[in-house]
Amino acid sequence: MMRKKTSSIYQWIKIYFHGMKTSLASRMAYRGDFFMSMIIMMVVELFGPLVTLLIYHNGASFPGWERHEVLLLQGTFLLSRGIAFPFFMGMVWNTIRRVQEGTYDLLLIKPRSILQMSIITAFDSEDLGKLIGGLLLFFYALKSVPALPLVNWGVFLLLFVFSLITMFAFGLFMTGLGIVWVGNYRIYEIFISTMDFGLYPRSIFTKVFQSIITWVIPISLLGSFPASALLGKEMTGVFGAMACSIGFLLLGLWFFHRMARNYTSAGG
């Protein structure tokens, strides 16, 4: 039984790498544009904290947060996004495009689950620039932080995994929407704008919004909680957010499969 499971994961990874290779090969047809896009993605990510930098440059601040602490929070957020976008978030775009063209059927007839196929065929190589940008910002911010206890790193890593789970759940909701809301590429915008709440310290929001981004849509897990763990700041409601993240994932999986059943194959 165990052996069968290991073999299945191995197969999954093997197919995923195959998808990565194919995606890279096709993108290399316009390699000049590819490298430029990747560099641009990286630079764009570095502009993420622009507002923060300008606020602190003008002598203002977010109450209770130093400049480097906010940068670390935003670096964490961008790192999480940098992993999510190239490796699995492409399923949203992939699904919307295929549903619109009516070629989603090609994934349905493959001998793998539809979710697996949606991810495998959606590796977005140029979004690796986001990952590089996120890493650069994270380590730049980390330079200004004094040595941190190992336990902080441990909690940070755990919460970072939860931030990826939340990202994946977001992806599932967007992909599900993409199946029924035919041809609407602006679904991404809804997701990106909502995520903006995670780019700033949780404490700047009102109590009601803090509750929403902790216990309803756990956006605070994307940056605020992992960065607070690393910096040793208070994390009221973190366990609730973690539980909510799991619930969000399960709901996302249910929603995706429910929407996949509504696929009409008609295009749009």
Partner: peptide
């Protein structure tokens, strides 16, 4: 497609509202 802005823009604006509200508190 266009009407998506009716969801997106208020969210962006709310984020800006909270950022500047926090800044102008001090």
């Amino acid at each position: 497609n266009m009407a998506v802005s009716l969801i997106v823009q208020p969210i962006y604006f709310l984020v800006q509202y909270f950022i500047w509200r926090a800044v102008f508190q001090v």
